[in-house]
Amino acid sequence: MTARITRRSAAGLIAAALSGGYLAARPRAARAADAPITLLNVSYDATRELYEAIDAAFTAQWLSQYRQKISVLQSHGGSGQQASAIVNGLQADVATLGSAFDVMQLYTQAHLIPENWAARLPYNSSPYTSTIVFLVRRGNPKNVRDWADLVRPGVQVVTPNPKTSGAARWAYLAAWAWASRRSGSTEATTKSFMKTLYQHVPVLDAGARGATDTFVERGIGDVLLSWENEALLAAQKLGRGMFSIVVPALSILAEPPVTVVDKVVDQRGTRRFAEAYLQFLYTPQGQQIIAENFYRPRSPAAAQQYAAQFPAVAQMVSVEQAFGGWARAQAVHFADGGTFDQIYGQ
């Protein structure tokens, strides 16, 4: 009896879900020429303001050029979490994530994109770069100038958890790169610096926005290790003059990549639009919007125009150059039993 009831109610649930599923399926581009085309851009936390501006500009341009309406839907969240949602079936036409490692998951976990995805667009498919900077409180009371100052007694550092946050992984690698380039450094001295650094972290938030909240709203910590764009945004939006930005002598070249999700666009018939959308990021107008939203543009013209906004980092290292690429960096530092596990919580 119980079995029957359960089976029957399960059948009912599935039937309800199926009919709902048909109703909710997004209109296919191929069905009607005049129906608006929708694209879903699945992105990370920090890009909300950026893609709001990009979407408006791209759809306006497409409308005037082709007399065709495109509407771009946005989804934002932690970069790793968003990648796993796409792997689990979130119908992203394009993925614009925080690190190449997260985009790689779309290939390794589900073969949604080809292995050579990064070679399909200029600059390793990263239309902009960013870096990790220090956000400090007004007047820099603890006089934090560089990485070495973070481990001085009495300095508290806020940074999210590298296991869950893209920004935190970049920050971790930047600190590692600095420590391993000191004269006379060995792997042991680098690890010991990293261990001391994370002993100065009072809270490990799950994501970059959470860490910014801890630092700005809850007033915890003396230094926030932050995306440059997030720091510039926080400094502007959350009270001018409350914070200032300190650029360390060495930092990491963060290259958040973008890709079309091949399996989705081929099923939905949206490849043409998705590709045009990503190419728009590389146009002069796209690069302009990127710079206005505090990301470092790739095009020399936009870079020159906004040079004052982005302080020079004396030494900028890339993941390829310092860590032999994302796959290696992930395996060595952030996988279970990697260096982060070794230095944290022991």
Binding site: L13, A17, L18, G20, G21, Y22, L23, A24, A25, R26, R28, A85, N88, G89, L90, Q91, Q267
Partner: peptide, 14 residues
């Protein structure tokens, strides 16, 4: 078959 349950309205209702 083009039926989306999760990451769509049916999943939220379910």
């Amino acid at each position: 078959h083009g039926i989306h349950i999760i990451f769509a309205v049916p999943g939220i209702i379910l």
